[in-house]
Simulated scan of single mutants.
Amino acid sequence: MDIFPMTAQSRSHSHIQSHILITGASSGIGAALALNYARSGTHLILWGRNQERLEQIAKKAQQHGASTETHVIDLNNTNHALECLQHIDSDHPIDICIFAAGISDIRPETELTELPHIVQNIACVNFSTPITLATEMAKRMAIRKSGNIALIGSVAAFHDLPMASAYSGSKAGLARFSTALHAAMKPHNVFVTLISPGYVDTPMSQRLVGARPFLVSPQKAARLISKAIGQGRAHLLFPRIFFITKVLEYLMPRSITHRLLRIANVKQNPSTLK
């Protein structure tokens, strides 16, 4: 039995110019990035948990001239994801690797804390699995002296969110890992880019109840992200207004910022993690 399930458009690899792997490609930012990169001469390796949605994105990408393959991967299984990545890169070296998959949750109003099993899932999908895979790709790209890695974080990394401590904590860890890996890999001509978006109009943010200030479309987010990756930037934060909130929280006494964040009382529609 093939442990690397794949569907692919027929192609000759001799004419492929670049191989791009995107996790979380079945929706949201990952799907928008897949379509943004879709063009003749590009081979897209799309990872996600929903085979049907992955195939829909793959077909759209093919219409723009890209070749595609899809892999149903559960990032809660770090070892299997790592094995798949090693297999794919050994077959056809990856030029750009974008870790866009992520999950979020907000503490239920009836609970004093977030639910432990959900915290575990968030830590694995948002932090431990992507940094494991990014480390493997960094080593392989460093040997080849070429490559780009991008990790999709969040502006939540810079704020102590009382109602989403696991989410903000996982993104904070991812942010520090990303900038540290960038420092380590730049001498090897491998560029690691941390992406810190604010509200993007994706299924994840659509679960929130209330205003989503400075909302950005997935398509605009994908354009900004691909440009930053192409430039080899260490960090992209958008919209820029969130740079101001980051600085303000750093300058204000923590007791005051925590009080304000508790008052915010963000809620979400009843839902399971998707």
Rank of each mutant, 00 (worst) to 15 (best):
S90A: 15
T78V: 06
L161E: 00
G173M: 08
T70D: 04
T23G: 03
T113D: 12
S128G: 01
A172C: 05
F99W: 11
K139D: 06
V209Q: 11
N189M: 01
F238Q: 05
P5K: 13
M163I: 11
L151C: 12
S90R: 15
P270C: 02
G102R: 03
A180E: 08
S168Q: 02
Q62A: 15
I45H: 14
T179S: 09
T257G: 00
R144L: 04
P162N: 10
N126Q: 05
S154A: 02
I103E: 12
G153T: 06
V155S: 03
G41E: 08
K246S: 11
H43F: 14
A222S: 04
G232M: 02
T202Q: 02
S104C: 11
M1E: 10
L251P: 05
Y167F: 14
A58C: 11
S205M: 09
V125N: 02
Q9M: 11
I122M: 09
V200I: 15
A264M: 12
C84Y: 02
E55N: 15
H182G: 06
G210D: 06
P253M: 02
I241Y: 03
N265C: 06
N265K: 13
A211M: 00
H71V: 06
L21Q: 04
H188C: 05
A100K: 05
D201R: 05
L33G: 08
I225V: 09
P5H: 10
S178K: 00
M137Y: 00
K220E: 15
E136C: 13
A32M: 10
I103L: 14
A211S: 13
I103S: 07
T129S: 11
V216I: 15
V190N: 03
I96Y: 11
A156R: 05
L174S: 01
I131G: 04
G153E: 08
I29R: 07
M204H: 00
L181N: 04
M163R: 12
C97I: 01
H188S: 13
I195R: 07
R223H: 14
N76R: 14
A8N: 08
D2N: 15
M1P: 12
I241F: 07
A138P: 00
A228C: 08
S168G: 01
L112D: 13
A123V: 11
A228H: 09
C124I: 14
A58V: 12
N76H: 08
